[in-house]
Design a protein around this nucleic acid. Sequence first.
DNA 1: CTGAAAGCGCTTACAG
DNA 2: CTGAAAGCGCTTACAG
Lengths: 344, 344
Amino acid sequence: MARIRDIAARAGVSEAAVSIYLRDNDTRRVGGERKRKIDEAIRELEYRPNTFARALSRAKSFTIGVLVPYEGPVFRSSFLNEIVSGLQTRLFRNGYSLAFPPASGVRSPVVLKNQLDHASGFDGYVLFGTRFCSRGDMEENAAMLERVGIPFVMANMPELTPSVNQVILREGPKANPIRYLLDLGHRRIALMAGREESPDSLEGIDQAAETCGQYHVELAAEDILFGDYELSIARSAMLTRLARGSDLTAVYCLSDTMAMGVYEALSEANLDVPSDVSVIGRNDSFFARLLTPPLTTVQRPLYEAGSQCAEVLLRAMESGRSGMKVYLDGSLLVRGSTAVPSER
Amino acid sequence: MARIRDIAARAGVSEAAVSIYLRDNDTRRVGGERKRKIDEAIRELEYRPNTFARALSRAKSFTIGVLVPYEGPVFRSSFLNEIVSGLQTRLFRNGYSLAFPPASGVRSPVVLKNQLDHASGFDGYVLFGTRFCSRGDMEENAAMLERVGIPFVMANMPELTPSVNQVILREGPKANPIRYLLDLGHRRIALMAGREESPDSLEGIDQAAETCGQYHVELAAEDILFGDYELSIARSAMLTRLARGSDLTAVYCLSDTMAMGVYEALSEANLDVPSDVSVIGRNDSFFARLLTPPLTTVQRPLYEAGSQCAEVLLRAMESGRSGMKVYLDGSLLVRGSTAVPSER
DNA sequence: CTGAAAGCGCTTACAG
DNA sequence: CTGAAAGCGCTTACAG
């Protein structure tokens, strides 16, 4: 591997000259003839500046750590992947690399601590909430990062401490799926939440309960199901619920993936969507419109959330600002999986 | 940000002592009382060794560059994501980080060159072929990496230069989908390939033609379609083909995603799957079994391919070996989208 | 316009 | 068992 010293020697100039020319091709610090010599040496030796040496001496690494405090394959979640896509596109444009430090440990703050041990010296972080992160975990995580003192932004979490930069996906006024079901005439609605401790699920339950309350409809405890954001678990949860009596006429699922599990369960129970039971999903994953029937879903701007994370982070890195909050609203896409309730 | 110097000062020991203790807690180089002091200082100052300084002086970064020479969101491909998941899991276990250097440029070797400028000093690379990489591109890419002199492994490419480490997904003896269709009695079969120049598509075409040949069936040029590995493009390509006459009785698609596009096209043409046209996909993506009808598909061990990439790379990094080739076979999962051809 | 020197935060022989 | 010193490959004042 050629070093800057080799280039300098071959071109007959000082290392400083090479370094400065590399940073700015138009510098007047280096004369024309010498520039040509340097260029030539670089080409001949296929010189590439060492990333780590450069980061160390510049005190700027052009590396953003993506922190998903969860042991297990990250890239399997189409939800996260969509956000990361937006993040990547925006950050690449500014020349930043994305680094995923190794995850190990069980409790989320422990995993994060381990990840930070491999991510010291980075320019910024994007912290993702996962279904294994309770609100307390995330507060602990955020506090840890604040002590580190490097700019960061949180994705995929309901609003937290005011000092934290966050991009927040919220249902928004145009998207209330429970209200939509109630307006259609449904009175016995189930909520397929994710994981009991997850802030997203808790928020979903609160909102559903509140909306039901406005219609003087009860959201019964037995109608709050937990599908762990996974297809097969949602399927079992739904099956279990159906075994207790099929008086439900609608289900709102906090992810399209879980909605697919609900489709499966309903089909096994010989219940038709939507004539027996209406189903609503969330995210508008690419497969949603291709299901039979096409899934009514709460579209959420995930890619946009990713690029907003990048935007906030870039701003935080250049100005040191914190406490920025960006809110992104969802919207309801009505397709074929919802209908007025029929008497059975 | 605390440095090793701060820890040394606070604990009243030399920097060397801290560094050595950090590397090996059981060292006898540092006495018990001093160890305690160091621990305390580390905890109080929440010290984390600087990744870049450490990489530089150790000449070992514990960073693997994931090179996808393609400008555009990488994490949107569920195909790549599944491979990367396997890679990540195995590499994390050994304490490696995954780094995605920024992509810019149009031609694949140009993108790769740019990426390498941001990835110098890494311990190893995983190079992915994309649908925009011709065989010539990939040979150029491989040659470039060989000149860099750092261990690397290629994923998602048919067999290339012997010197290159590769994990190769091949159809394998148990998976020949064209033969399966022929055995069912189909005689007019279309192939939904990806992109004209992509080696994967070329290989798929060769194999399909060869198998057809064995049955004295012609794979007509007009029955070789290009769906660019995308749903909507596959849909249009299929629609265009159907407009020329619907004498086809079967389609093999080089990805499940394209198979979904074919489903759409067939449904728009009022053709039933499988009674009018049989459809086979590839990859066994998670949604394949949930389509209506459930998709017959060539299951390929993508996650396993990812962990094999990691395995090969780890071996290459410790031994310098090259020219390793790992072959992984697919297998045909027969579900509801295939049947014997009916006369129409 | 140019080079010699010090420094970034670590680690690794080396001498005791 | 311990510390002082040199070095990893860059960059950045500094002096000319």
